[in-house]
Simulated scan of single mutants.
Amino acid sequence: MDNTVLHKAATRGHASHGWLDTHHTFSFANYNNPDRMHFGVLRVLNDDRVDAGKGFGTHPHDNMEIISIPLEGDLEHKDSMGNTAVIKRGDIQVMSAGTGIQHSEYNRNSDRLTKFLQIWVFPNKRNVTPRYDQITLKEADRHNKLQQILSPNADDAGVWIHQDAWFHLGTFDKGVTTNYKLKKKGNGVYAFVIKGDITISTIALNERDGLGIWDVDAFNLQANSAGAEVLLMEVPMTL
């Protein structure tokens, strides 16, 4: 299909820094792949494992929407706006870096690693006032259905960002099918399989595979294993 791009898990960029083991779906840091710079406005999808007692020291960001989704363990966040918070599985964290922000992220646990997805989205407004938010979602609300976790609207379900993007999480029993209808014409969807095996349209995906799909109004998704977990990121395709 000429309106899809498949990124198998094993083809991602990989870096091991001892305390940090990370896989990059798109070019990041020392991983530079001209064919994988972004998917529409989705710029970064990092699959990070942080060792106990370790983390990212204070570092800057600007003009980027940054979303963190913890998968296991928890992560302490501190930033230049005075926020100190801990995010854990079930939480969604968002930062609008805007005119500039500095933050650090640490796994304060002494006995277990933390796994989380770090996602960067180009904003549709530059130099906004920096902003931080986090929410806790009910994981039961994504069993055999798609739970909205992010949108462009502050009064809608989930967190919001400065972009016409919608993210959904779902955890499915084997054999369950669902349909996703795109929210905005011209958008595409990047699907990332967190766990298990899933088919989207006719394309079979396994754990940590990614699939971008565009020029569609809707598509079907089927779980091929028990507890299959997927993140759908609908984003504008033009920067």
Rank of each mutant, 00 (worst) to 15 (best):
L205K: 03
H103P: 00
L6R: 11
R36A: 01
G82K: 09
A9M: 05
W160G: 05
K183V: 08
T114N: 07
G100R: 10
I161C: 00
A218T: 14
N83G: 04
T177W: 05
Q222A: 14
I66E: 03
F192V: 02
I87P: 02
H61T: 11
S110W: 08
S110E: 13
P152Y: 07
P123D: 02
I67F: 14
V50L: 09
E229F: 10
I66M: 14
N63I: 04
S201M: 07
S201E: 02
S96P: 10
I92L: 11
D48W: 00
D2K: 10
G98A: 12
I66S: 09
D141K: 13
L42M: 07
L6W: 00
M64Y: 02
L137K: 14
K54S: 07
Q222K: 15
P34R: 12
V193R: 09
V121T: 06
N30E: 07
L75N: 02
H103C: 02
T202I: 04
D133K: 14
E76W: 09
R208A: 14
L221G: 04
D62M: 14
W166R: 14
N109V: 10
I161Q: 00
M233H: 11
T114V: 15
I135C: 06
H77C: 06
M37Y: 05
S27C: 03
R142P: 09
T84C: 10
V193W: 11
T178R: 03
L113H: 14
Y31F: 15
N33S: 09
G100K: 11
Y132C: 07
F116V: 03
I101M: 08
F122N: 08
K138F: 01
A29N: 12
T202S: 05
E229Y: 13
P123Y: 08
A157F: 12
T199C: 00
S80I: 13
E139C: 07
G100P: 04
Y132P: 01
L137V: 09
L137A: 11
D164K: 07
L6K: 13
D173H: 14
L150V: 15
G158K: 08
Q222F: 02
M37A: 06
R36M: 03
T178N: 14
S16T: 05
F167M: 08
I87T: 11
Q222P: 02
A15H: 06
